[in-house]
Nucleic acid binder design. Structure first.
Length: 483
RNA sequence: GGGCCGCUAGCUCAGUAGGUAGAGCAACGCCCUUUUAAGGCGUGGGUCACUGGUUCGAACCCAGUGCGGCUCACCA
């Protein structure tokens, strides 16, 4: 049907797809918000027909543009009978341009009284139902363009996402950080514990991996003397998909020379509360019915204290690995461990106890500090306790949103840590950190004492937009093909 | 990977003693010059996800497959 209409238009020399531009002078929202100023003046608006109420010799059209909707009033007197008859053949979904005077109808609806109307694009496919919109989750993700057209709150979420990201850049750029681009393709995927995606270069006849983190390259930039750097972009991890995980996701990593993890904590809480205010107007947000306040300073708690606070054992009293293993058995922690119990150290078991007892209780923003050395291969040890490192993770609503360290810069110790990771891999951990020899070589050139941090951008966006699933903050989430 | 749930018109959804399918919106035709989920009268529209089985007969019962959602496990 719509194709027939299109064919007729083309035959009459009025092919809408031949239109190359339209002079859009205003958007819907600015007209509606400043009606007193606009009343009686001429505007040109453009957008998609969302509703068409034909009442005979007049019609009302809801026009949707970037910012919202505005009503268009048109009739045979203003437009001429012939032109008006043509307008009545247009369909919901078509994209049009309208020029006319701003006025208010009897019912008080701010509208544009059309003096000219132009068909700019013909929609050959009808839109989903006007009242219920597009609800089917699968279609919403597969055909996000329809979701954006039909569901205003989806548009709002993605505009807010952009605002969050630009505010983060703004915050860092004004504090002397420079944004750099590190490789997505490389021969070694390291810097995090995850399985990578594998691909192949035809030109180099070489197996390459998609990055799982930007850490080791950003530290090379610190070695080179850049002092404050960040890379915000996609990382790729070949792992499970659920409401908090998408195979490609956005992460920012930043590094600051001459700083430590305490500086990173301050940067983290200030940066995120800044982004919250920029995007939502407040540090307080409602997430799935729970009020969360990102206002700095955030609560600080060591991992050992967190376990104790939430009903777990006191690890300061655990003498060695053997005692920790007995404790793990007693507490039923085997399920949380990824190795056989006999291979687990005190640190592995502390981490498992933290996940079991404490993690889910960390609703308001909380820094958990001082992680066991064996699970933190890129982190400096604490000066007074070599079994622990200067590392923290930030938790909100029981979820990790950031991970930061005082960066390990001793090339000899770093090499030993990588060798330990190789052993972990042999013990069955296929996500152990891969050795990057050139990175170790860069540390031999000398990296100043440095603080570094990674923040999961999608998760921040989820909290600030009240999104239940990560797929609701990624425009085109990873899906299996449909056919 | 395990468990549970979903898939019916373009969209939102109904549809069990198993008897070859319905509503609203959208579309099409007619009426209506201030409507706004406009209204009124009329018309057309379906491989009931797919494959197989049971049955005289399957949207419906059974088995398998696909895609999706939730959840547990695993991770980040």
């Amino acid at each position: 049907m719509r194709r027939e209409k299109l064919a007729k238009l083309k035959a009459a020399g009025k092919n809408p797809f031949a239109v190359v531009k339209y002079d859009q002078t205003h958007h819907s929202l600015e007209i509606k918000e400043n009606f007193e100023r606009f009343e009686g003046s001429e505007v040109s608006v453009a957008g998609r027909i969302m509703s068409f109420r034909d009442i005979g010799k007049a019609a009302f059209i809801d026009l949707q543009d970037r910012d919202g909707r505005i009503q268009v009033y048109t009739n045979a007197d203003h437009l001429g009978a012939e032109r008006y008859a043509e307008v009545k053949t247009w369909d919901i979904g078509d994209i049009i341009g309208v020029r006319g005077k701003v006025f208010k109808t009897r019912r008080g609806e701010i509208s544009v009284e059309a003096s000219s109307m132009t068909l700019l694009t013909k929609a050959l496919e009808p839109l989903p139902e006007k009242y219920h919109g597009l609800k089917d989750t699968e279609q919403r993700y597969r055909r996000r363009y329809l979701d954006l057209v039909m569901n205003r709150e989806v548009m709002d979420t993605f505009r807010k996402r952009t605002k969050i990201i630009s505010s983060i850049r703004e915050y860092l750029d004004t504090r002397g950080f420079i944004e750099v681009e590190t490789p997505i393709l490389s021969t070694i995927a390291s810097g995090a514990a995850a399985r990578p995606f594998v691909t192949k270069s035809n030109a180099l006849n070489l197996q390459l991996y998609l990055r799982i983190a930007t850490e080791l390259y950003l530290k090379r930039c610190i070695v080179g003397g850049m002092e404050r750097v960040y890379d915000m972009g996609k990382n790729f991890r070949n792992e499970g998909i659920d409401i908090r995980h998408n195979p490609e996701f956005t992460m920012i990593e930043l590094y600051q020379a001459y700083a430590d993890y305490n500086d990173m904590m301050e940067l983290c809480e200030n940066l995120i509360s800044y982004a919250a205010v920029k995007a939502t107007g407040s540090t307080k947000v409602n997430y799935q019915g729970t009020e969360i306040d990102f206002k700095a300073p955030w609560r600080r708690l060591t991992m050992i204290d967190a376990v104790k606070t939430y009903g777990g054992p006191d690890f300061t009293l655990v003498a060695d690995d053997a005692e920790a293993q007995r404790l793990a058995k007693e507490l039923g922690l085997e399920a949380e461990l990824k190795k056989k119990l006999k291979d687990c150290t005190k640190g592995d078991i502390l981490n498992a106890a933290f996940e079991k007892f404490a993690e889910e209780h960390l609703i308001q923003p909380t820094f958990i500090l001082d992680y066991p050395t064996e699970i933190s291969p890129l982190t400096k040890e604490k000066p007074d306790d070599p079994t622990m490192t200067e590392r923290f993770e930030a938790f909100v609503y029981g979820r990790e949103i950031a991970n930061a360290y005082s960066e390990l810069n001793d090339p000899i110790v770093q090499l030993e840590r990588f060798q330990q990771q190789a052993k972990e891999r042999e013990l069955g951990d296929d996500e152990a950190y891969a050795l990057d020899e050139d990175f170790v070589a860069s540390l031999e050139v000398g990296m100043p004492p440095t603080g570094g941090m990674g923040i999961g951008i999608d998760r921040i966006v989820m909290f600030l937009t009240n999104a239940y699933s990560i797929r609701d903050v990624i425009l085109f989430p990873t899906m299996k093909p449909n056919e």
